[in-house]
């Protein structure tokens, strides 16, 4: 139960609110630590005691399957007591504000709170009101740091490096916290980043994010080492941002034909959940170049690394 960790990496900050603010060394430190957990998670004995006695609250204001499950498993495997706050049946439904919820939870002395919220900046607001560590599990269209870290880990394990790779992020960049966190992280590690989307799904000023911008897949996927597809929300696909799923798939859906525009050894990623036949074709999603299932595996390891690295910085008294 107490296999000693090889990496002694500590994240010297209270919270993980975004990739922004992390140094290159901190990112690499987290990835190296996560590597150990990948191995651990493949064993029958997956438990460590490093978070024993700690309380982790999963506070999800947006429904989530994989991220919530991933954090829950990560906490449990490190020995923490994990509580999932079901927001749908809680007092938030009764009109309690985010800050009041934070103050209430804080009184229960948690050590770590994992927060997902539909409003950009909500995690930062919550972090100001609690004494424990806050981990951003996705805030609006702002950041989703653990997704970017697990994506980086997946890339590094498959390509043995990140620096110098061309990573192309395709789809709804405008609304995507995954895209923002990935752009920050990949730039910090020296990758070349390109985004591809119809203009309606690109934020203003995107060209100043340190990315190349393309508006069609042939141009956008040329020379790509990694293709990250993003989910297109249903409410955005029927005439508001793009005309229809049919047209979106025709021009921006990743099928075998478009995949061939990239390098022959290009790998395909998707943060999930996928809309098959909208942004990605099943043949590609389930194909030999797909890393999508591996991303889920890396998710647990990366979240263990984040919890571990933050908890090492928590006061022990």
């Amino acid at each position: 139960m107490n296999i000693a960790s090889k990496s002694s990496f500590v994240l010297h900050q209270r919270h993980l609110l975004g990739i922004e603010g992390l140094s290159r060394d901190e990112i690499v430190g987290l990835l190296d630590l996560a590597e150990e957990f990948v191995d651990l998670n493949r064993q029958i004995e997956k438990k460590r005691a490093s978070l024993r006695g700690r309380t982790l609250i999963n506070l999800f204001f947006e429904v989530s399957t994989r991220t919530q499950a991933s954090f829950e498993l990560a906490g449990k495997r490190l020995g923490a007591d994990v509580m999932n706050m079901a927001v749908g049946s809680s007092s938030i439904r009764k009109g309690e504000t985010l800050v009041d919820t934070a103050v209430t939870l804080n009184a229960m002395h948690p050590d770590l709170i994992v927060v997902r919220h539909h409003a950009s900046g909500a995690c930062a607001l919550l972090a100001q009101k609690v004494d424990c560590s806050v981990i951003n599990a996705g805030d609006g269209s702002h950041e989703h740091p653990t997704q970017a870290l697990l994506d980086a880990l997946t890339i590094r394990r498959n390509k043995e490096r990140i620096e110098g790779l061309l990573v192309v992020i395709c789809g709804d960049i405008l609304h995507s916290r995954v895209a923002r966190s990935n752009i920050l992280l990949l730039n910090a590690l020296g990758a070349r980043v390109r985004v591809v989307a119809p203009s309606t799904l690109l934020p203003a000023g995107i060209e100043r994010f340190g990315v190349e911008v393309a508006r069609d897949m042939r141009e956008g996927l040329a020379d790509a080492d990694i293709i990250m597809m993003l989910r297109l929300q249903r409410e955005r696909m029927n005439g508001s941002f793009v005309p229809s799923t049919q047209e979106y798939f025709h021009y921006f859906g990743l099928d075998s034909k478009k995949l061939a525009y990239a390098k022959p050894d290009a790998l395909v990623m998707h943060p999930g959940p996928m809309n098959r036949g909208v942004e990605i074709d099943s043949i590609v999603a389930d194909g030999a170049q797909s890393l999508i299932r591996e991303q889920v595996e890396m998710g647990v390891a990366v979240r263990m690394a984040v919890l571990e690295a933050l908890s090492r910085n928590l006061p022990n008294q």
């Binding site: 029927n238 005439g239 508001s240 793009v242 005309p243 229809s244 049919q246 047209e247 025709h250 021009y251």
Partner: peptide, 15 residues
């Protein structure tokens, strides 16, 4: 320009 000319949802301009 918009579906059913209703002025709400854009049509499949590319197709």
């Amino acid at each position: 320009l918009t579906k059913r000319l209703e002025g709400q949802e854009m049509t499949e301009i590319g197709l």
